[in-house]
Amino acid sequence: MSAVLEKPPIWQRAAPMFQGFDGPLAFAVFLLACAGLLVMYSSGFDHGTRFRDHGRNMLIAGAIMFVVAQISPQRLMSLAVPLYTVGVALLVAVAVFGIAKKGARRWVNVGVVIQPSEIMKIAMPLMLAWWFQKREGHLRPLDYVMAVLLLVAPVGLIMKQPDLGTSLLVLAAGLSVIFFAGLSWKLILPPLAVGLVALVLLVVFESQLCAPGVSWGILHDYQQQRVCTLLDPTKDPLGKGFHIIQGMIAIGSGGLLGKGFMQGTQTHLEFIPERTTDFIFAAFSEEFGLVGNLCLIGAFVFLILRGLAIALEASTLFSRLLAGAITMIFFTYAFVNMGMVSGILPVVGVPLPFISYGGTAMVTLGLGLGILMSIAKAKRLVQT
């Protein structure tokens, strides 16, 4: 009788929580986390407690990933509308009585000070995936219009703060869902063509458009300055162009194999601004060179391909759209960060996933990974 009532060991009771975890995805994250800790130690060992705090943030993100992975996709779908509604309400609260710092109104006090725009990075793809799941099998053009409206409202509120970097991430996540839901290429190609023409005209007429006193109207002054600085950073090499110029110098000086671990002169002589956050890719490039960059990019490509594979294998439309959008968030983070540090995109304050210092971004990444793990687990458990 006692043998029947005896509880199994704790490891046997905990084992089901680990079943179905996606090994290749976990391996990709492990590689990126190791790279992040390595470069953070080099660039931040003399920067207060950055290295220790970065490790702590990684552990928190890992715990969040593990907890979220236990939530089924069906349960996640039920959270879509409430989370989106709360997120938009908080963005409105920011616009009305938010806390302003350094000329930006991005925070609100609800007992604790939070940045609601971070919620929308996850709430947006959840909401749109829910929207298309409910209309599976009988999608109409009006449904896509409504999806765009659901996307434009929070993106507009975030841009108003202003926060161009976060608004781009939320926009990319939402557009990914709409694209994966089957939006026709006939509707995608015209905006791309217009954007390409606008880019060419911007480069050709840079001297006139970026002349003193010229205002574009559609962008804030600081955003216009960032675009103009990207086009010609040498106009203000010790001011607005300093970040881009120093980032490119660090990347170029790394050469093929890099200067070696903790041997980066641009990094340790503090020429690279924000060397532990937005511009950490420059510090990594200087010390590990082109070979290190290719390895890092390879790890990101592996992570993205694995996320897309999870999306492709998902059993429901909601899971497929959500996994695809979360994966594209990782792609956008990495592409925009590397692009702005390399001088091919404007500086917009987007961190490099798992590499850059930042607690809020790490929590968002943990949530995203947890969702991917949840979708992968659901598929594997169905198969078994």
Rank of each mutant, 00 (worst) to 15 (best):
P273N: 12
K259F: 03
A299Y: 11
E270P: 10
P273I: 10
P353I: 07
A309P: 06
M328V: 12
E313W: 12
Q266F: 02
G339P: 06
F261W: 10
F335D: 02
R320I: 12
M338V: 14
R275V: 08
A282L: 04
I304F: 12
G258K: 00
A299K: 07
G324Q: 08
I297E: 10
G254A: 10
M328D: 02
L256P: 03
E270V: 14
L269W: 13
G349K: 03
L321N: 07
A283P: 09
H268D: 10
G349I: 00
L317T: 12
R275P: 06
R320N: 14
L256D: 10
A282K: 03
V291D: 07
L352C: 08
L317M: 13
L269G: 13
L290C: 13
R320F: 14
G258I: 05
Q266N: 03
V350Q: 01
F331R: 03
T332H: 05
F318T: 01
Q263N: 14
V347M: 11
F284E: 03
R320K: 14
A309W: 14
N293V: 13
V348M: 11
L256V: 13
V301D: 05
R275T: 04
A325I: 05
G349C: 06
F302L: 15
Y333R: 03
S285I: 02
I297W: 11
F271R: 05
M262E: 07
L312I: 13
G307Q: 01
I344F: 14
G292A: 09
F271T: 08
S319H: 04
V350R: 01
G298I: 12
A309Q: 15
G349M: 01
T265H: 10
F279E: 11
G339W: 01
A323G: 08
L294T: 08
T327C: 02
E286W: 00
F302T: 13
V336T: 09
A309K: 15
L345H: 07
G292Q: 05
N337T: 03
S285W: 01
A309Y: 15
F281L: 12
V336H: 01
M338T: 09
G264N: 05
F279M: 13
F261K: 00
G292F: 00
T316N: 09
L312C: 14
F331S: 10
P351Q: 06
N293G: 15
A299R: 04
V336P: 00
